[in-house]
Design a binder for these strands. Structure first.
Lengths: 133, 133
DNA sequence: GTATCTGCAAAACATTTGCAATTCT
DNA sequence: AGAATTGCAAATGTTTTGCAGATAC
């Protein structure tokens, strides 16, 4: 994956900050928060500010190369993995995992009233590690 | 629905604040925020504080007579309608609607790694009103 | 040289916490 | 009186905004 080309293709001018933030998202599929991204990059880009991280992520979401994950109350997380998948959160350790959907058959009543553009599936429970400890 | 009895049955001592907040949630299925609930009740209970609204909703969620709706980034909403349903948010007007699920067939890979206790399905798109205007 | 992008500092919100006053039994 | 509940005020944490300086074309 060439990050510079990827940004350009999606109408985003590739600055150092934007390239590094996208690279971080792509290489760290841990659904990081703004703070996690900032902390993870500030050593490499000492002048980085959180404002830039916020601006850049908003730009990515607007241009559909990233999505928000709001499984957690009061903290927005980000994801550059765009294929459809569910998110699982362990209510014990707080870890968030991608879960591949094998069969998805969802049908709704009253659906003629809406045009659905996006479906988010969030699962909560306990992960194996927390179940066995 | 007798709200006082409902609270008592669920091990919640029924104070005026608790009864009125539950009644508001039950009668206003608009997935209100803490602020909406507070504003909707402060005329009726002039001494009401937001802290009490926060405390009371936490109590309701802990005792499973209400759930949180986090379809919106950075704002927690509450719901007293407990039957399984999806939530639809119109990205245009911001309205949030309950959507009844007619068929639900979701299967995941890697599921042996988790025990799923709760599934939230959030839909985004455009509502009829916004599609035709 | 003009547009855009970055980043500091302050402001704006949502939520939590500590504690004192109030209420209930 | 004793225990639980309420609510004010302050603190915390996240996100947004205004604007000045830096960078890119």
């Amino acid at each position: 994956m060439n990050f510079t080309t990827h940004l350009t293709t999606n109408n985003i001018k590739p600055s150092i900050q934007r390239i590094k933030i996208f690279e971080y998202l792509y290489n760290n599929k841990i659904h990081p928060t703004v703070d996690t991204i900032y902390t993870g990059l500030v050593n490499e880009i000492p002048t980085l500010s959180k404002t830039t991280v916020y601006n850049t992520l908003k730009l990515f979401v607007d241009n559909k190369i990233a999505t928000t994950v709001t499984i957690e109350d009061n903290e927005v997380r980000y994801d550059a993995f765009l294929e459809e998948h569910a998110h699982f959160k362990c209510d014990d350790c707080g870890g968030i995992y991608d879960v591949e959907i094998a069969i998805k058959e969802l049908k709704y009543k009253e659906l003629s009233d809406f045009r659905v553009d996006k479906t988010n599936i969030y699962l909560n429970g306990k992960c194996k590690k927390c179940l066995t400890k």
